[in-house]
C-alpha cells in the first residue's frame, strides 16, 4: 500500500492549522513568524503533492512553483525578522499586544 494524495492533503492541512495556531495564539512576534513559515511550507507540500499525483507529471510545474515559493518565503523571513529587530530596538519589547501605538 502506498500513501495516497488524500493522505498528503490531510497532512498539509494539519501542518497549516498548526501554523495558524502559532500565528493566532502566541503573543511573541517571532512565534507569529514561525507560524507563517509553517503555513507557507504546508502550501509547498501541497504544490509538490499535486504535481506528483497529477495525470501528467512530466511537466515539473508544481516543483518550479514550490522552488519560487521557497525563495519568496526566504525573502519574507529576512524582512520579517529585520522588522522584529527594528521594533525591539524602538519599543524594547516584541510582545505584539504591547505594540498598540496606532490604536484609536
Amino acid at each position: 500500500m502506498t500513501p495516497s494524495l488524500t493522505g498528503f492533503l490531510i497532512l498539509s492541512a494539519a501542518l497549516f492549522c498548526i501554523g495558524l495556531l502559532a500565528a493566532l495564539s502566541r503573543r511573541h512576534a517571532i512565534f507569529i513568524l514561525i507560524g507563517i513559515e509553517l503555513m507557507l511550507a504546508a502550501a509547498n507540500v501541497n504544490f509538490v503533492a499535486f504535481w506528483r499525483f497529477s495525470p501528467e507529471p512530466t511537466q515539473p510545474t508544481g516543483v518550479i512553483v514550490a522552488i519560487f515559493s521557497i525563495a519568496i518565503a526566504a525573502a519574507e523571513a529576512a524582512v520579517g525578522l529585520a522588522l522584529v529587530i527594528a521594533v525591539y530596538r524602538h519599543y524594547r519589547t516584541t510582545n505584539v499586544d504591547k505594540l498598540d501605538q496606532l490604536k484609536g
Binding site: 495558524l20 493566532l24 495564539s25
Partner: peptide, 28 residues
C-alpha cells in the same frame, strides 16, 4: 536567522508564555 533574532531580542523573554485559546479553537 530566527535563532540570531532570538538572541538579539533576548532581554524580553519573561512574559512570552501567554497562550490564547481562541486561536486553538479557530485552528481546529
Amino acid at each position: 536567522l530566527i535563532v540570531f533574532t532570538i538572541l538579539l531580542t533576548r532581554r524580553d523573554q519573561e512574559n512570552t508564555s501567554g497562550f490564547n485559546w481562541g486561536g486553538a479553537v479557530v485552528a481546529i
